[in-house]
């Protein structure tokens, strides 16, 4: 972490000189991920590819502030996550980062609308914020085509419908960065294609940067940039579209 380094450019998310290591099974070498520089500008969409165990999910967790690097800078929406305490990072994550998971991870006891509003609930939004959040959730539901399903529990929704609820949940806070960890892994090809289009369209419409881990190489053309996680240590940030 060098405070003397040149300021990061106006980005939604940026990693510079990041180094992260954790121990794996006894007797094996520890896993190490290094990122020389990676930045995402507003509206930019990047796909992250790489073999299993190469650090794709670790990269997403570093960008979200779930993991803290041993060295280097991580900033989201202009806020240096690596300098914050655990509680502050959690607050920033709830405010600035939208997350979409492979299993969607909706809360089974909340209906679709309540699930979309969970990021606002957990960060302790007041009544005014909840009111405007509800309006935004309704608008998002309309945009992703689940307006008629808002009162249903996850168990009453199809896989594709659950995915759309998860997308709306990731965007309800108007985040600077949307992180998706294999969000199409459980969908059939048609639904997967539709979900990615939806994510790209909604993220771009809101000026959020999108970083998506995927194994589906058929979807890569739709992204502004493709990042191979194994090459990040070299010069990931320098790649252009489809690098």
């Amino acid at each position: 972490m060098s405070s003397d380094a040149a300021p990061l450019p106006q980005t939604c998310a940026a990693l510079r000189g990041v180094s992260f290591e954790y121990a794996r099974a006894a007797g094996t070498r520890p896993f190490r991920l290094e990122v020389e520089e990676l930045s995402l500008t507003p509206g930019e969409a990047a796909a992250v590819i790489g073999p299993s165990g190469s650090g794709k999910t670790t990269l997403v967790h570093l960008c979200a502030g779930i993991l803290v690097p041993e060295a280097g800078e991580v900033s989201v929406g202009g806020v240096r996550l690596d300098r914050l305490s655990d509680g502050e990072r959690r607050r920033e994550r709830a405010r600035q980062v939208g997350l979409v998971f492979q299993e969607f991870e909706l809360l089974d006891y909340l209906n679709a609308l309540e699930n979309i509003l969970v990021p606002l609930r957990i960060r302790g939004a007041d009544r005014g914020e909840l009111r405007s959040g509800r309006a935004r959730a309704t608008e998002l539901a309309d945009a992703v085509g689940i307006t008629d399903l808002l009162g249903r529990l996850p168990a009453q929704l199809s896989q594709g419908e659950r995915q759309r609820v998860a997308i709306a949940r990731a965007l309800v806070t108007d985040p600077a960065l949307v992180l998706c960890d294999e969000p199409t892994g459980n969908l059939d090809p048609e639904a997967a294609s539709h979900a990615v289009d939806l994510l790209l369209e909604q993220a771009r419409a809101r000026g959020a940067a999108l970083l998506m881990v995927t194994h589906d190489h058929g979807l890569l053309d739709r992204f502004d940039r493709v990042i191979d996680v194994t090459t990040l240590a070299a010069a990931a940030g320098s790649g252009g579209p489809n690098s």
Binding site: R93, R95, V118
Partner: peptide, 16 residues
């Protein structure tokens, strides 16, 4: 457990 991990990753306070 899965629900707690989800809330934790979304940004819920520690020990949610």
């Amino acid at each position: 457990g899965a629900e707690m991990r989800t809330l934790d990753r979304i940004g819920a306070p520690r020990r949610v």
